[in-house]
Design a protein around this nucleic acid. Structure first.
Lengths: 121, 121
DNA sequence: AAATATGAATTACATGTGTAATCGACAGGG
DNA sequence: CCCTGTCGATTACACATGTAATTCATATTT
């Protein structure tokens, strides 16, 4: 699966959330703080098409875009990559790091424990 | 903290593992499969210096390089970035994803549970 | 029908990155 | 004292990415 750049990812998010959409609709839904022009969004869409992670179908004179890959799949791939690179593939090392940095609230801990308990049955 | 590119990160890994080192020593320790020439490693070192994540001191006619940032800090920042982008900042969502993908061995689960239990005391 | 707006496609351009080659200074071996 | 190897510094060059503007065709409005 082709790598998706940071900015491109923002476009994918929009389409994972709601699809199919026209270029203008995507632009309208991209987070404000990107400050992107419609032209920029169109460039992103073309590049994502070229990467094969989007498809489009014609609707009159416009295109309707929709994701060609599942969000879960991409997210799984990216997180795997990070865990491999930074934690030698060891998930517990990641959790330990998060713990050491106080990234785990009591609620997080409880939730994760529940998840793990469920896994064991 | 400046962003470190994928290739540059491999150089940082070497120096986090052992420092200070000369450029030639770093090159010798970069993973074989990168297939980098000494020149390439030197370029990486310059760029990392420019980014302020390395320092160097002269040793005769050569430089000795050493990290200017701590590995844990950089790793924490990068994992935080990923968790924010892909899991809305929610660590349990990341763990759930890993679970759903069978990325957690029984040993991993046990280890994480132990970590979490320790956190609560 | 002419003017205008709108769509995708093409082109643009700066910066980052991977991957070096080359240059100019100098140290050490003969 | 000169040659050669070795340093870091400078330059190179293609591809990725952020961020558009321009172009060309066509729909829509007056």
């Amino acid at each position: 699966m082709e790598r998706i750049a940071e900015g491109e990812y923002a476009v994918m998010e929009v389409l994972w959330d709601e699809a199919p959409l026209t270029a203008a609709d995507v632009a309208a839904r991209v987070p404000e703080d990107r400050g992107w022009s419609l032209a920029t969004v169109k460039t992103m869409l073309s590049r994502l098409l070229a990467k094969g992670v989007l498809t489009h179908e014609e609707e009159g004179r416009r295109y309707l875009y929709r994701p060609a890959i599942r969000r879960e799949d991409y997210v799984a791939e990216e997180s795997g990559r990070l865990i491999d690179r930074m934690f030698g593939g060891r998930v517990p090392a990641l959790v330990a790091q998060l713990a050491a940095r106080d990234k785990l609230s009591p609620a997080d801990i409880a939730e994760i424990e529940k998840l793990l308990k469920a896994l064991k049955s």
